[in-house]
Design a protein around this nucleic acid. Structure first.
Length: 560
RNA sequence: UGGGGCGUAGCCAAGUGGUAAGGCACCGGGUUUUGAUCCCGUGAUCGCAGGUUCGAUCCCUGCCGCCCCAACCA
């Protein structure tokens, strides 16, 4: 066994390349402790891709006895809102993480950032540029051609300083001038071709209001915020790798003592969904879904509303490796984690989603009895409950076939099945309406089989769930499927054409066992044989399906 | 004048100079008062081509392929 593995076992961490670096840094004494940060821009809701970053940053802090900050990268007031600031905190907490005292905002550092910018100007490392956007683009060159110096590049320090102060004072309109770092217009790395550091934005900020009309951009705010907060390891996704030389250049230029280091890992891509803020925003704004927390969305709030346990999300993330290779993780992986968690935790209940009336002809009218049902077949500690049984019941339509194929174990004319936790029943007669639609089954029950076992030892192949018609509670049920048909929805605006038209199915009339009347929103249960469900947080009369159970019968049926 | 990153089974991946962990999916089989769960079992010579070596997925060289970068977004 290698040392790395031994050490990983000792400190409880994994051993991906980032944790290996952290471990090595700590051992070499390069840092006193580890400090990470999760730095969302408050311009949308968190999705499961962010969960990867959250689990990584908070996870590493936990494993190495350090701390992790929640920092809002709020440097662009034109896109950011208080609503998002609050939602993000709710989501991070729900995922199970705590930033303690360390809730920070890049906007808290605006004054310090401004002072550093003046320092850069004084050192001749930054200048005010008057080039309009399109000209600046032209001067920047292309991927294969060097850029050219702006005609304003060699302005005197005093003039730069004066202009920059007047930018701050609000003397110029949006877009009139910017502050740029003076680096190298011929750099192969585009980020080094005199990147913009500050722009004029006469726009109110959710936190600083109208105090500022110039705002630093990402590159001038991020590394500096890391430095201010004494972040040791600044973890971000791969697309920022090209920014690292600039990150380092700026920290060097402003002269911070303890330099944070940036490391990049690949972002999460999940099949059958979209994980870019642009696309998710579009889905919401164009009404393709019912909001950011529509249970079909990959957002954290949607997962919560759908009944997915936070522990399942964490488990899913922990099975992902932190690497630099970009891939597409199958949704089935997430679904497995959800089922695995819920299989252990979710109490069992009975509910009939697509009802078919059953009348037990030999059961007395106006009578009922209570039968005992286990709350979890594999965990007696979860106890049991009483379920009412009477002459008229509902069973699942799919549990009856008039002309059953081989290997169909459920109800059919003349067949006997077990009603879970109740009795054996036999189907004697099939009632249909004028259209030939089956409307009711007339059955008889065997009183000797109370509880589900026959004293004579006879067996039945099928066990189906049921609900007493007179006692049942009614509800609407929403079933969800993948949001997109393709594993990887096409890039570009046509991705909407790939939306799965059947991603939402509403069952108008389901019948639940009475106990479910009191189920609080947020508690996910298993409807036996049907899947995991929870009450919708926005509508008491609705239950959402978190996920169906694995269904090998559907596979058998699909093959024939 | 281009820069950066990545290629190990269908998917996510571990790994090392001595002949490829694990998880998911799939497919078989067993148990079962959920066709669930649970339990068993099945698959790769490591992008390609050369080279170094007793021996290479691992080292070298050359190809090929994929991703990111030309916002006053983050």
């Amino acid at each position: 066994m290698s040392d790395v593995v031994n050490e990983a076992e000792e400190d409880g961490g994994g051993s991906d390349f980032i944790r290996d670096i952290v471990r090595a840094d700590l051992q070499a004494g390069r840092h006193q402790g580890v400090v990470t940060r999760f730095p969302p821009e408050p311009n949308g809701y968190l999705h499961i891709g962010h969960a990867k970053s959250i689990c990584l940053n908070f996870g590493i802090a936990e494993e190495f006895g350090g701390r992790c900050h929640l920092r809002f990268d709020d440097t662009n007031p034109t896109r950011e809102e208080q609503e998002f600031i609050e939602a993000i905190q709710t989501d991070v907490r729900w995922l199970g993480f705590d930033w303690g005292e360390h809730l920070h905002f890049a906007s808290d550092y605006f004054e310090q950032l401004y002072q550093w910018a003046e320092g850069l100007i004084e050192a001749g490392k930054a200048y005010v540029d008057d080039l309009p956007v399109d000209e600046m683009r032209a001067y920047r060159g292309s991927l294969t051609e060097a850029g050219r110096n702006s005609p304003y590049r060699d302005r005197a320090v005093a003039e730069n300083l004066d202009l920059f102060r007047r930018m701050r004072a609000g003397e110029f309109p949006d877009g009139a001038r910017v502050l740029r770092a003076k680096i190298d217009m011929a750099a192969g790395n585009m980020n080094l071709r005199d990147p913009v550091l500050y722009r004029i934005l006469h726009s109110a900020h959710p936190r600083t209001g109208t105090d500022w009309c110039i705002y630093p951009n990402y590159d001038f705010a991020h590394g500096q915020s890391d430095a201010i907060e004494a972040i040791t390891h600044s973890l971000c996704t791969l697309e920022f790798a090209d920014h690292r030389p600039l990150y380092d250049w700026l920290l060097e230029a402003i002269g911070v003592d303890e330099r944070p280091r940036q490391y990049e890992f690949s972002r999460l891509n999940l099949s059958h969904t979209a994980l870019s803020k642009r696309r998710l925003t579009q889905l919401v704004e164009e009404g393709c879904v019912d909001g950011w927390d529509d249970p079909r969305m990959p957002t954290v709030s949607a997962l919560r509303r759908r009944g997915v346990p936070a522990a399942a999300v964490r488990d899913f993330i922990s099975r992902l490796a932190i690497t630099k290779s970009d891939g597409l993780v199958e949704m089935a992986m997430l679904e497995h984690c959800i089922r695995e968690q819920l299989n252990v935790d979710a109490p069992r209940r009975m509910a009939v989603l697509r009802p078919l009336k059953v009348v037990i002809e030999n059961y007395p009218e106006d009578e009922s009895e209570m039968l005992t049902a286990q709350n979890h077949p594999g965990n007696a500690d979860m106890g049991s409950r009483e379920v009412p049984f009477s002459r008229e019941l509902y069973v699942e339509r799919d549990d009856f076939m008039e002309d059953p194929p081989r290997k169909f174990f459920r109800l059919g004319p003349g067949r006997e099945v077990r009603l879970r936790y109740a009795y054996f029943i036999t189907c004697n007669e099939v009632i249909k309406d004028d259209d030939g639609e089956v409307t009711e089954l007339r059955c008889s029950y065997d009183p000797e089989t109370r509880g589900g076992n026959a004293p004579d030892g006879r067996k039945v192949k099928g066990t189906i769930h049921w609900v007493s018609a007179a006692h049942a509670v009614d509800a609407k049920v929403r079933l969800y499927e993948h949001l997109f048909n393709s594993e990887e929805p096409p890039s570009g605006d046509d991705f909407l054409a790939d939306l799965n038209p059947n991603s939402l199915e509403v069952l108008p009339q389901a019948w639940l066992e009475p106990d479910l009347a009191n189920l609080p929103a947020g508690q996910t249960v298993q409807f036996e044989r049907m899947g995991y469900f929870c009450r919708d947080s926005a509508n008491d009369a609705v239950f959402n399906r978190t996920l169906g159970l694995r269904d090998s019968w559907a596979k058998i049926k699909g093959k024939s």
